[in-house]
Amino acid sequence: MAQMRASWMLALQYRAGFVGEAFGAIFWIGWGVLPLIAVFERRPEVAGWTADEALIVVGFFAALQGIVEGFIDPNLRAVVELVRQGTLDFVLLKPVDAQLLVSFHRSTPTKLPHVVTGLALAGWASSRLPDPPGVLEVAAALLLLLCATSILYGLYTMVVSTAFWFVRVDNLSYLLLSILDTGRWPLSFYRGAVRFVLTFVVPIGLMTTYPALALRGQMDAPGIVRVLAVAVAFFVASRLVWRIAIRRYASASS
């Protein structure tokens, strides 16, 4: 994609920023691990998760966070700006799918180290499990992570589409980012209402916990299919909402 190329060029123009982000990624992930170390110092497992298993969740969380912050959030947040300033005109004038175009037009490749570090952490932690995952488990985990990305993308797109009605919705994307933060810990760490919300309403918990469960060999085929269905549903819904939203676009006067 040429859009991606342009984003990369932009990112590499600021090479110092790239290196900085890489170190930042390691620092923040390390920071996120600290509470885990503190907790698991005193007890071998929490809510059925050992330290290494919880570390897998943290790794996946970091990877997903990198994907969101680098490739979903900046693009869709920029849509809000495009709508507000009316420069979405130029996107709509191009003979390609507008949703596709805005979804890639302002990626921040500097977040890539974040994704890589997160995956590496998950990989390292899973290799320390008493029963290390095989090819099938790894494939299932990656598939679930892909589903998670699709669900997040769908959520984001729907939230951002409301910009066509309300114009300023940047704050909603902050809300989403902070909700995403809850995916840092395995789902079973939470209880009651919170757990219900994180599983079914805004399925953040499912995004990081299920791939980790897959690595532990605890996701069966029907479970994976269900997540897959949810992912597809979110994606389709996001396209519908976007379609409706675009007809409401009023541009900005000049």
């Binding site: 932009l10 123009q13 300033q85 420069t87 005109d89 130029f90 000049s254």
Partner: peptide, 11 residues
């Protein structure tokens, strides 16, 4: 549009 631009600003 004389008032809007599509050129990428930093490139």
């Amino acid at each position: 549009m004389g008032q809007k631009q599509q050129l990428l600003w930093d490139l």
